[in-house]
């Protein structure tokens, strides 16, 4: 069972590396979103530094959302999802493997790349560790909550947009705690706020690690009947 789980993750990683540029595409999108912001609100460096943590988080959220719809859809179209559902690996673990693959190909590259757009937005270098730590804790939550939306909309035409609509409200706690952790480090909030929000973010991430696969598997069962 463990072997099947890791084989599934490996398959997703190989697929991402060989078709569609792997994490490169997501990083590119992330950079483009960040580059559009100063064009929209003006090149004031002080303002940019103030909103940088929030902007980076919103960009992470959007890139994560946009890659969601292919998560199960591609497997659904070529029939491999039916095979996975009939296999011995429980559907919950299939969903968990998919979410892990999504995190490794989308979330992790973005976290690693975050300092570059951070510098472009004039974010203080001292805030980078806190921001990256928060993103590292929050990105798995985005993937594991995201599979719920992907599972619910599998087999629907134009499902990608709907999946984003369904998942976005669930992302709000991750966004709030993640930005709070980064901002607390940046503006020197009273002691403990940074640690508190990071702890809460980890709590949300751990809860989504359980809730996500179970709900996604239930959604897939409903859709594959």
């Amino acid at each position: 069972m463990t072997r099947a789980f890791f084989a599934l993750i490996g398959r997703d990683l190989r697929l991402a590396a060989r078709i569609g540029g792997g994490g490169g595409m997501a990083v590119f999108f992330f950079l483009v979103v960040v580059a559009v912001v100063p064009l929209g609100i003006g090149p004031d460096l002080n303002l940019l530094a103030r909103i940088a943590p929030g902007m980076l988080w919103v960009a992470l959220l959007l890139s994560s959302l946009l890659t969601l719809d292919r998560l199960f859809q591609a497997d659904y179209e070529d029939g491999s999802l039916d095979l996975l559902a009939m296999g011995r690996l429980p559907l919950e673990l299939v969903a968990a493997a998919k979410a892990t693959g999504h995190f490794l190909t989308t979330g992790l590259p973005l976290v690693v790349a975050a300092p570059l757009p951070g510098l472009m937005l004039n974010l203080e270098v001292s805030a980078f560790p806190a921001l990256m730590l928060a993103m590292l804790a929050g990105a798995p939550a985005l993937s594991f909550l995201g599979i719920i939306g992907a599972g619910l909309t599998v087999g629907i035409r134009r499902g990608g947009l709907l999946a984003s609509l369904l998942v976005l409200p669930f992302y709000i706690p991750v966004l709030i705690f993640g930005v709070a952790a980064a901002r607390a480090a940046l503006f020197g909030f009273p002691d403990g706020v940074a640690g508190q929000s990071l702890t809460l973010l980890c709590a949300v991430a751990l809860a989504s690690l359980v809730l996500g696969p179970v709900a996604a598997a239930a959604a897939l069962r409903a859709n594959l009947r």
Binding site: L166, A215, A218
Partner: peptide, 17 residues
Amino acid sequence: RAAAVLALVGAINVPII
């Protein structure tokens, strides 16, 4: 069935949000 799953996930999430 899909909508029921969504409603339940939402119900768990409402207090967290």
